[in-house]
Design a protein around this nucleic acid. Structure first.
Lengths: 336, 336
DNA sequence: ATAGGAAATGTAATCGATTACAAATGAGCA
DNA sequence: TGCTCATTTGTAATCGATTACATTTCCTAT
């Protein structure tokens, strides 16, 4: 690997001049520039990012901390982040936290040692102290898919509570008269927000009862048990609002096993809008978030912050949209 | 951020001594070590990976190049790679290539500038020259899910051709008498291997005809068109072997649209064994690769190579396994 | 004619580590 | 006693860039 000194020697100039050419800074004579460029090309010279980093320049990488890349919601988010990062010449560190505080803390430390330029965190449970340590070092942070105290960090999220209300209203409009909720983990913001949205609507009805709520883990696994518990307590449920699409999928699977028809016996609505909802039979009605756009927006904000083009904390809240699938297409008779 | 000099000053020793403590190299008096460790703790000192990198040490990051992280096959692979990397204190760069030569070449360049310690590439179309440039720089490379000339790089893959034969045999055993294939892109190794496997079996039958093959893109999108073309040419198809699960999913969707029943009218078999195949109605029969293990194995091999514990090129080929779903459970009458 | 400043280039310090080499100390042994 | 060698520590060069500062040349306006 040739170094800047090799280039300087070959072009017959000093390293400072080569550096000026590379960085397009200071004055360089046109002819000199040509000589340098020629030498660089000839030697196939590539400036070492590591050396530049040590000399105070950006390393041009950002980190993305998320619970689990194999979850389709996050893999789409990651895809968006990576696309935008790539467009701006940043590389992305992939960090799976599994919502585990220790893993996360460990990552934070490693990332600081590696001079990461910025951080996007969409992990559900993070230690705010860890994040604060980034702010102390003036490393920009964007928080994705979380509602945290709005101090110092920028946030990108969507309207979870409103979306949950949308879902429940939709179920009501399609004739459901007893709607249960399988919530996300209550230690997560999104899990809580969606539960609140559900409660906003159902608490007005006489049939409502807190035992209509079961907590899930935002995963397929476990949603079957949650459903069983609900059905045991309330065999007359005719609508289920699942806290996310993966759980809706699990519910669909379990309902089938129980011999219950969707949507005839029970209607199901999910949340997120992952592609999967369109592939099942029946397709799943869901409250869609603009997943890709959210990831892209977060990445754009981060890049701007890194460049110093934007400072302070911003909140960016995306609209959600109910996408009607077959899982709620039942007769409206009961409703009318 | 404190530096090694701050630590040295506080402990009343030289930077060399501090470095010795950090790296557990050379001689350090027990008492001195204690002083240094205390100073490090007190200052919350974290050695800069960048500075160490410049001084010739490993940066402790590896890159993972894959076509598209939002594809469930690759997101599971990525998950495995990241898990293993994390266990060995490596961070993972996520690189989506979209099977685009330019993007890939661009990444290769960036990665070299950033002193990446090793590379796992599971992209379908890579320029061998680019990869060779890594070998020239003695940067270990592991190739995942590809059959390339076995020179200088280690390879992890599964038995694609055999798996394809398995799939077709299974369809035959379940009464199919005219089996079509929607192949993966023929510019990819896996796409080709699976096609060969299909041909191995079907070419023995009188009904076989090359027009029973349509090329897909390993994605849901496009598999509907491929299926339409096949059905137009051969309305009497009663079995379809899709080159991967995503295409099988698309086929299922399109068959439903066309009013054809699965498996009664047409049986469907996929390849890969992604979780999705278990969630559809009917569930999809598939030839499962041990996706997670493959990713984990690749990562382990890479780490060993980076540590110099393993040199030379190795080939690791995983077994595949047919997982029977509902999409091929038809009466065996025709077969008997 | 000349001061002032733009243009062009080079020298050397710097970033934060590692490490070769030197030097000092002390113990063991002939 | 004097020599060898393990132990302990420090000095300074090095990795490959950036950049503050110095220097030189040359153009221009007064």
């Amino acid at each position: 690997m040739p170094t800047i000194r090799d280039v300087a020697k070959m072009a017959g100039v000093s390293v400072a001049t080569v550096s000026r050419v590379i960085n397009q800074s200071g004055y360089v004579n046109t002819k000199t520039r040509a000589k340098v460029l020629h030498a660089m090309k000839h030697l196939n010279y590539k400036p070492s990012t590591v050396a530049r980093g040590l000399a105070g320049k950006k390393m041009h990488f950002i980190a993305l901390i998320l619970p689990d890349i194999s979850n389709p919601f996050f893999s789409e988010l990651a895809r968006a982040v990576e696309d935008v990062a790539q467009q701006h010449d940043f590389t992305v560190f992939l960090c799976n936290s599994d919502n585990d505080d220790n893993k996360e803390a460990n990552y934070i430390e490693v990332l600081k040692k590696k001079n990461v330029d910025g951080l996007i965190i969409s992990s559900n449970t993070f230690n705010e102290k860890d994040i604060e340590s980034f702010r102390d070092d003036k490393i920009p942070v964007v928080i994705l898919d979380r509602s945290i105290i709005n101090e110092g960090y920028s946030i990108v999220r969507s309207k979870n509570r409103e979306g949950a209300r949308l879902a429940v209203h939709h179920l009501l409009e399609h004739g459901c008269r007893k709607i249960a909720h399988i919530s996300g983990p209550q230690k997560t913001d999104t899990g809580r927000e969606r539960l609140y949205g559900y409660e906003d609507v159902v608490k007005l009805f006489s049939w409502y009862d807190p035992t209509l709520i079961e907590e899930g883990q935002f995963q397929i696994e476990g949603s079957d048990i949650a459903l069983q518990n609900l059905l045991r307590r309330h065999p007359d449920i005719d609508g289920i609002f699942a806290g996310n699409d993966l759980m809706a999928l699990g519910v669909l699977k379990e309902l089938r096993k129980q011999g219950l028809r969707v949507p005839t016996d029970i209607a199901v609505c999910g949340f997120d809008g992952i592609m999967l909802t369109k592939l099942t039979q029946p397709t799943i009605t869901t409250v869609a978030q603009p997943i890709y756009q959210m990831g892209a927006k977060a990445a754009k904000m981060l890049v701007q912050k890194i460049r110093g083009e934007q400072t302070g904390s911003q909140l960016f809240e995306f609209e959600v949209k109910l996408i009607e699938g077959e899982s709620t297409q039942r007769n409206h008779c009961k409703n009318s």
